[in-house]
Computed example of a mutant assay.
Amino acid sequence: MDVLLLPALLLLCLLILILIPVIILYAIPVRSVLKFTTKDGTLRETVTVTWCLIGIEIAHDPVGTKAGVLVGSHILYTFFFDREHGPAPRAGEPETPVRLQAAQKKSIRLSYKLIQPLESLGSVLWQESRFEGATGRITLGLGDPAQTGLCYGYYWASRFVLEALRIHIEIEPVFDREVFSCDMDIRMSLRHPLRVIIAAVRLALNPAVRDVASVFRQRTPGAAAA
C-alpha cells in the first residue's frame, strides 16, 4: 500500500502544479492603462499592462521609446530604444517582376487562409475585453470666444451621457487664446487571459501562419544572400 501511495502523491502534486497556473491565468484578469499627455504641442503616450504583481510599461515621446518591467508599482528594469532606424538591410539578389508577382499571388492566397483563424482570435479578444473607464482633463481654447463657448456647451450637453459610459472628462475652457492640452487615462481589461492565450497558440500553430512567415522571410532583403 505504501508503495502505491508515493506515486499517487507525486501525481497529485504534479496535477496541482499544473492546475494552479491554469486557474490563476483563467481567474485573474490582465489590466491595461493607456495614457495620453499633450502639452505645448508635445505628445507622450504610455501603455501599462499588468497581471498579478508583474507588468510592463512602454512610454513614447519625441525623445524616444522606453520599456520598463514592473513588479508591483516599482520599475525593476528599463530598456531604452533609439529613435534612429536600425542598420540598412543588406542588398540581396534583385527581385524580377515575375518573381515579385508570384510571391504577391502566394501571399494573397495564404492571407485568405488566415482570415478564419484571425477571426477566431479577434472574437475571443472581443468577448474577453472590457472597457473599465476613462478619466481625463482637457484645456481647450480655439482662439475665438464664441467657438470655444459653443464647444464647451456641447461638452456639458453630452457630459451625463459620457459619465453613463464611464467616461469622466473635465474640460477647462480658455477664451482669450488658442491652446490645447490633455491628460487622459483609458483603462481596459481581459477577463480570462487563458482563453486569449489558447486562441493565440492555436493561431500560431496554424499551418497558414508558418507558410506566410516563410514567404515574408524569402522576401526580406538579404535573405537570398544569407
Rank of each mutant, 00 (worst) to 15 (best):
R31F: 09
R31K: 14
S32G: 13
S32N: 01
V33E: 05
V33G: 01
L34D: 01
F36Y: 06
F36L: 12
F36H: 06
T37R: 15
T38H: 09
K39N: 13
D40Y: 10
D40L: 10
G41M: 15
G41T: 13
T42Q: 14
L43M: 13
R44K: 15
T46K: 04
T46S: 09
T48V: 14
T48L: 15
T48R: 15
V49H: 04
V49N: 05
T50K: 15
W51A: 03
L53W: 11
I54F: 09
I54L: 12
G55W: 04
I56M: 11
I56P: 00
E57M: 04
E57W: 01
I58N: 02
H60P: 00
P62I: 10
P62S: 11
V63L: 08
G64Q: 02
G64D: 01
T65M: 10
A67P: 01
V69P: 00
V69E: 00
G72I: 00
H74A: 02
H74P: 00
I75Q: 03
L76T: 04
Y77Q: 02
Y77R: 06
Y77L: 05
Y77S: 06
T78F: 00
T78A: 00
F81Y: 14
D82C: 08
D82G: 10
R83P: 03
E84Y: 13
H85E: 12
A88Y: 04
A88H: 06
A88K: 10
P89Y: 06
R90Y: 10
R90D: 14
R90A: 14
A91C: 10
P94D: 08
E95A: 11
P97A: 04
P97T: 04
L100H: 07
Q101T: 11
Q101D: 07
A102K: 15
A102E: 15
A103N: 14
A103K: 09
Q104V: 12
K105G: 06
K105W: 02
K106Y: 02
I108N: 03
I108M: 07
R109I: 00
R109S: 10
S111N: 07
S111D: 10
S111H: 06
S111V: 02
K113H: 06
K113M: 09
L114R: 03
P117V: 07
L118R: 05
E119D: 12
E119V: 08
L121N: 07
L121K: 03
L121W: 11
G122W: 10
G122P: 00
S123V: 03
V124Y: 05
Q127G: 05
S129G: 08
F131D: 07
F131P: 11
E132I: 06
T135N: 12
I138P: 02
T139G: 03
L140P: 02
L142R: 00
G143L: 07
G143V: 01
G143Y: 06
D144M: 03
A146D: 09
A146V: 14
Q147V: 02
Q147L: 13
T148F: 02
T148V: 05
C151H: 04
C151N: 04
Y152F: 14
Y152H: 13
Y152G: 11
Y152S: 13
W156V: 12
W156C: 05
A157G: 09
A157F: 14
A157I: 15
S158P: 00
